[in-house]
Simulated assay, not measured.
Amino acid sequence: MHIWVDADACPAVIKDILFRAAERTGGALTLVANQYLRVPALPQVRMIQVPGGFDEADKYIAAHVQAGDLVITSDIPLAADVVARDAHALSPKGELYGKENIRELLDLRNFMDTLRSTGVDTGGPPPFSMADRQSFANRLDRLLHASAQRGG
């Protein structure tokens, strides 16, 4: 299982968890971002810098993800694309996006986007918490374990 990270908005603590997981498992980890990011000097970890611009990292990931890969993103449209390609998508807060929930999440995201465009203050997401970090780490471990059991 190759892990792809939509890294521009990914919290540093989540990247650290991913670096440790890549070191522990030897699995491929690729961070994709508009800006240069430092990554550990591990042969299976790499950083791809895409041109600046709207959704450039998302486009790169969508073009390269394979069935069975894992994408770390909080971007619902990218998650929908990933799920449609039979890959896994996981938010930095530990929410697993799948065929059973992605349509509802995409509809909610589009509704909230419409509200914001009409001037309604919808607030923002709650701050990233220790519980979010733990939820992500637990879900990642389960996904990596399941992948290892399948031999991938």
Rank of each mutant, 00 (worst) to 15 (best):
I14M: 05
P127Y: 00
T30N: 11
S117T: 11
L140R: 13
P92D: 04
A21F: 04
A89F: 08
Q66R: 10
A33W: 01
Y60G: 10
Q35L: 12
L143G: 11
T73R: 01
V71S: 03
G26S: 08
R38P: 05
V39A: 12
L37A: 11
E104D: 07
V82Y: 08
M47I: 13
D81C: 09
P77W: 00
L105A: 10
I102C: 07
S117L: 08
T73G: 01
Q66K: 07
T73V: 02
D8T: 11
Q66N: 02
P43Y: 08
V45H: 10
R150W: 07
G26L: 05
D113V: 09
I3H: 01
G27D: 04
T30W: 05
A33H: 06
A57V: 06
W4L: 15
R24F: 03
A22F: 06
M1W: 04
H64V: 04
L105M: 10
S129I: 14
S74T: 00
Q149W: 13
F54A: 12
H2F: 09
L18V: 11
T25A: 03
H64P: 03
R142K: 11
R142T: 13
I3Y: 01
P51Q: 14
Q134E: 09
A57T: 08
M1D: 07
I102S: 04
E56H: 15
R103N: 12
D8E: 06
N110S: 13
L70A: 05
R46Q: 15
R133C: 12
V65P: 08
V83A: 05
T73F: 01
I48F: 05
R150N: 15
P51M: 14
I3N: 02
T73L: 00
E95A: 03
R116C: 01
V83Q: 04
P126F: 02
A137I: 12
L140E: 09
N110Q: 13
L37H: 13
T30R: 15
G53S: 08
P125I: 06
D55S: 15
I76T: 08
L108G: 08
R103W: 07
D121N: 11
V39K: 10
M130N: 13
D58K: 13
D121A: 05
A137G: 11
Y36R: 13
E95M: 07
D121T: 05
P92S: 09
P92Y: 02
A28F: 00
D58M: 10
V32P: 03
A87Y: 04
Q44C: 06
Q66I: 00
R150Q: 15
L96G: 06
G123C: 02
R20D: 10
A79F: 03
N34M: 03
Q35G: 10
N110W: 02
Q134M: 08
P11R: 12
D6M: 09
L115Y: 00
V50I: 07
D16E: 07
L78V: 13
N110G: 09
D75L: 07
P40N: 02
L90M: 09
L140A: 11
A21D: 08
G53F: 05
V82H: 08
L29I: 14
L31W: 00
L31G: 01
L70Q: 06
P11V: 15
P77H: 00
R38C: 06
E23G: 15
